[in-house]
Simulated scan of single mutants.
Amino acid sequence: MVRFKNRWILVEFLSASDAEPTTELSSQAIFQALRQSVITHFGDTGWGAVGSSMSVKYFSPTTNLCIIRVGRDPHKIAWGAVCLLADVDGRVVIPNVVHVSGTIKHAQLAAIEHNRAVIARYRARAKTPAAYRDSYEEFLETSTREITTLQD
């Protein structure tokens, strides 16, 4: 019996404009945009390679952080498709690949650390003291719980 090996791609979707987004991103919209990007740039052969193994396992609308699972062999096709994404459901985005990992555990740790860094930037912009308890603290607790409960 052979084990199916995966790669986990941690992506942050940055908004290309400072204006308020007209549509909110979702896991399904990201998957459809990735599917279209793979087909457009790598053809049906590329989609055939990654289509059966690719899935969006986690998405946070607050930090626009996404964890994508894809098979180990065709992971570079998915990575390329992520980098070539121009818009998701009509919303112009800039994908930023934060981390690529061979295990879900390392992707989870990178996602938690990235969430903490993003929240620290939000707090620095708001000029709040470090010990100040706000809604971001609750978000960090719930997102950490959600991320750690992800299963392969």
Results as ranks from 00 to 15, higher is better:
residue 50 V to N: 00
residue 59 F to T: 08
residue 81 A to D: 07
residue 140 L to R: 05
residue 134 D to W: 04
residue 148 T to H: 02
residue 102 G to L: 11
residue 84 L to G: 03
residue 81 A to K: 01
residue 85 L to C: 08
residue 149 T to G: 07
residue 67 I to T: 06
residue 148 T to V: 14
residue 65 L to S: 05
residue 46 G to A: 12
residue 62 T to G: 02
residue 89 D to V: 12
residue 139 F to R: 11
residue 139 F to Y: 15
residue 53 S to H: 06
residue 117 A to V: 10
residue 26 S to E: 05
residue 129 P to T: 09
residue 22 T to G: 08
residue 53 S to Q: 06
residue 120 A to Q: 07
residue 52 S to V: 11
residue 91 R to M: 13
residue 35 R to G: 03
residue 48 G to L: 08
residue 15 S to D: 12
residue 18 D to G: 15
residue 3 R to W: 00
residue 105 K to T: 14
residue 86 A to I: 14
residue 5 K to H: 06
residue 58 Y to F: 15
residue 35 R to M: 14
residue 46 G to Y: 07
residue 75 H to T: 02
residue 98 V to Y: 00
residue 113 E to F: 00
residue 70 V to A: 07
residue 101 S to F: 07
residue 116 R to Q: 15
residue 59 F to V: 11
residue 75 H to P: 01
residue 52 S to P: 04
residue 59 F to P: 00
residue 5 K to E: 06
residue 99 H to C: 12
residue 144 T to Q: 09
residue 30 I to K: 04
residue 101 S to A: 14
residue 13 F to Y: 03
residue 4 F to Q: 11
residue 29 A to I: 13
residue 35 R to E: 12
residue 139 F to A: 13
residue 48 G to P: 03
residue 8 W to E: 03
residue 108 Q to E: 13
residue 34 L to G: 05
residue 16 A to I: 02
residue 98 V to D: 00
residue 77 I to K: 01
residue 41 H to D: 14
residue 22 T to I: 12
residue 121 R to V: 05
residue 52 S to Q: 10
residue 50 V to D: 03
residue 145 R to E: 14
residue 8 W to R: 02
residue 6 N to H: 11
